[in-house]
Design a protein around this nucleic acid. Structure first.
Lengths: 219, 219
DNA sequence: CCTTGTGAATATGTTCACAGCA
DNA sequence: TGCTGTGAACATATTCACAAGG
């Protein structure tokens, strides 16, 4: 689905082996689940066990993984540590990515203070806001910086991903600046669909979208 | 279940056919966009304009809407206010739903203080935490309550939706309590797939899932 | 017995293309 | 003209079912 979670634009090459985006989207969920199993001390799992836990079919898991290689053993299943490593390589999270955060309100604060990013491949390296009262204050492991320094600091930190956590009214303007600074991956918490060039990928988080999806079924 | 298949074909009410969940999932995005257009003073739009703005085809928008009725006028397009009202009715957000929030950390605080829920159909009516240091403190428009009172307060507030904003280690236990208290709709911010009965719907928000989806394409 | 990996068969989703109407 | 609504065509995604191997 292009809407609601993601707006994408791949001008990708015409490779005969293009892997469906919907498959890529499930890999992080597999990885997350496998790492929880590993934390529980488990060594091996099967597509069936994984599928039951995730509420999807075992065939789907096997088919998804088969796009990338043969990671399992017949009769046994998958070695959890090995499969985690493989998925991390596939998703390019066998390294840590630098992320800039725009917006130092309460949402920005929650994101900045979240402890779970680093272990999964991401680090907030800078936080920006326009509000002079916020600039200079500590937040998470850094200090809030002036939004005017955005482009320069993106260069310096080599960040490839941005998070937009500003009010709706400012989100498009922030996105424009991020694009101008060269970023091609944006996670937007503002409840608005951004207009960006085709080479820029935007994903969205809007809790109300989920609520409204649920209320349809609540009658 | 014996009846399910036949009863659906027999009962030729307005819902003669089950509408695909993926279609339901797009409606909130349409609604969100239409309301922004309305805020901009626009009266009328077309499937083409909407599609260009959202990055999807006009045919998809028309097809999605056609599941519910004929809302447009040939040659003209859609009256924005009218279509908003229709979508709100379809999604059951022509009223305000009570939501309980579990977890009064920085994420819970951000959710509690977010001003954008009410206008879109949702109100946080109670916040719960186990931490004695947090219980009683004001947060958003309410005070943090003892998690032990969860079931009773869900009854009293008539809440139908819960948000889980607790650490991963506590999320499953919280979900179990919510289900026991009778809730059937949960929005989970903890990075874990919850195990719940079939009649309970869970949606997830995990920014890292989005990051990892993006890094696949960042190579 | 278990399991995986996979081609074939289904099922689902999207787009095309056009009739019909303002 | 310009747009909607929709069956038909097409594209994509999921599941089935089974050979092969521990």
């Amino acid at each position: 689905m292009i809407l609601s979670d993601e707006s994408r634009t791949d001008v990708s090459k015409q490779n005969s082996k293009e892997i469906p985006d919907i498959v890529i989207g499930r890999l992080p969920v597999y990885l997350r689940t496998l790492r929880l199993l590993a934390d529980d001390g488990r060594d091996v799992t099967s597509s069936q066990e994984l599928g039951e836990h995730l509420g999807i079919s075992s065939a789907q898991i096997r088919k998804d993984l088969s796009h990338f290689g043969e990671f399992g053993k017949q009769g046994t299943g998958y070695n959890i540590t090995f499969l985690c490593n493989q998925l991390q390589k596939i998703l390019n999270v066998d390294r840590v990515w630098s992320v800039v955060l725009v917006g130092a309100g309460s949402l920005g604060n929650a994101i900045a203070n979240y402890a779970g990013f680093e272990s999964r491949g991401f680090r907030i390296v800078a936080i920006f806001d326009e509000d002079k009262a916020k600039i200079g204050r500590p937040m998470g492991s850094v200090h809030v910086e002036d939004f005017a320094n955005l482009a320069q600091r993106i260069q310096e930190t080599n960040a490839q991903i941005a998070v937009i956590a500003v009010p709706t009214s400012a989100a498009q303007r922030v996105a424009d600046q991020l694009v101008e600074a060269g970023l091609t991956s944006i996670l937007c918490y503002a409840p608005i669909t951004l207009t960006v060039p085709n080479h820029v990928r935007v994903e969205y988080i809007d809790p109300v979208i989920h609520f409204q999806h649920m209320t349809y079924y609540l009658g």
